[in-house]
Design a protein around this nucleic acid. Sequence first.
DNA 1: GTAGATGATGCGGGAACCTGCAAGACGCGC
DNA 2: GCGCGTCTTGCAGGTTCCCGCATCATCTAC
Lengths: 240, 240
Amino acid sequence: MKVLIVEDDPLHRSYLHEAVSAALPECETVIEAESGTMGEKLARDHRSAHVVMDLQMNNRNGIEAARTIWKERPDTRILFWSNYSDEAYVRGVSRIVPDGAAYGYVLKSASDERLKLALRSIFVEAQCVIDREVRGMQQKSLGQTRGFSDSEYEILIDIALGLTDRAIARRRGLSLRSVQNRLQQLYEKLDVYQTASDDHEDSRFNLRARAVTVAMLRKLLNYSALERAESELAEWLKQV
Amino acid sequence: MKVLIVEDDPLHRSYLHEAVSAALPECETVIEAESGTMGEKLARDHRSAHVVMDLQMNNRNGIEAARTIWKERPDTRILFWSNYSDEAYVRGVSRIVPDGAAYGYVLKSASDERLKLALRSIFVEAQCVIDREVRGMQQKSLGQTRGFSDSEYEILIDIALGLTDRAIARRRGLSLRSVQNRLQQLYEKLDVYQTASDDHEDSRFNLRARAVTVAMLRKLLNYSALERAESELAEWLKQV
DNA sequence: GTAGATGATGCGGGAACCTGCAAGACGCGC
DNA sequence: GCGCGTCTTGCAGGTTCCCGCATCATCTAC
């Protein structure tokens, strides 16, 4: 077995290296990449079937790297190892995992044992292993009660990018009023009205900008999600 | 000498511990805190004069922790050790450092030597040590050519928080038109107009929201800056 | 002192945003 | 079919935002 490690922090990289060696005696070679782009290249060159991937990296985001790797070989097994369980990351990962692929999501705060167990489960048994905390996030996100539907998330991203109502309408193939409807839903769910209609009605928020910030603070959005959305937007702008 | 380490990642914490022991033989005790709040408490209890502080932490941000530590004892020497040289962090740090205090800012990507040298310079010689890259950021920020003045930064934060023009005017003691003037300056500097007035004038951006996102992508703003701004806002809202 | 630069303020208008009301469209269960 | 809920769309209105034009105060340089 050959394992590819993609992680830009040298400390964490060597820690992972040791963990992999310890957990997988059948693994002969461990390759290391220190950025997302490097990871893609090495995965291609070595036809890696087993990857451990950091999510937050400077050069190229782990989600991006995973996406191109999976596009080339969808049966690659990838273990995501991340500091955070932000909804933005969790959602980003589950958007790109191919049908039937084995993958895992383990937090860096997890114990040695948990990490090693996850390594064996995914790489040897081809089982999916999702950290409990992350799992909870998924439930909340996919469940309809307090979570966000895809359409709501979509429009959240659109206003975060700074698009006009009209631009959103064209991009998503909706009428202007529908866009505004979804915005109202979003405002409702994000609870942006709280301090808005106070005693005197002047201490008000700009709902659109406020929604983005609240989403940020609640970790529905984060930097890397913005980055991805921005590049998708640029692509779309080119087409039109 | 006694050194307090505030860092939430166990790997980095133990690495720091070793580096401190190696660089400072005169240091008898090393204390570790795994969160900002914990760091504040330990600094208070032990009257720490020498602190190594991570900036990005889950529980309580390094800047917040440093602020309360410096408020209680302004002659504390703090070495910030961070992954990033985001303008948001650099600006955040230089806003809170007391007059004449010795502090340092070293990136985690720096070499062992650099870190140890910085430790000696700050804790023994009471010199300020700022990483070159960070320094460059400071220059760009304080210099007026491409950088942002304080007033522009202020208004950037205000719209990021989602305040109305009117609310900003009251908060900053300005007229409505002045606020809008500054907004125009900001839009100019952030170059938000680029794709705005394209061929047909409908593929447009909402300048206000777009400005925030562009600032995010350029790392003028980041999560922790938002967090701080949000709590300051909450305080201000209580007063009024 | 005069001229020029910078910044704060007021006014007005056009565009974008937010929302209440109401009419269709679609699917689902009975 | 019929009723119900959800989603979409249009219209109208009030509010907020964006900005050009103009005035005034302050400060600097010559």
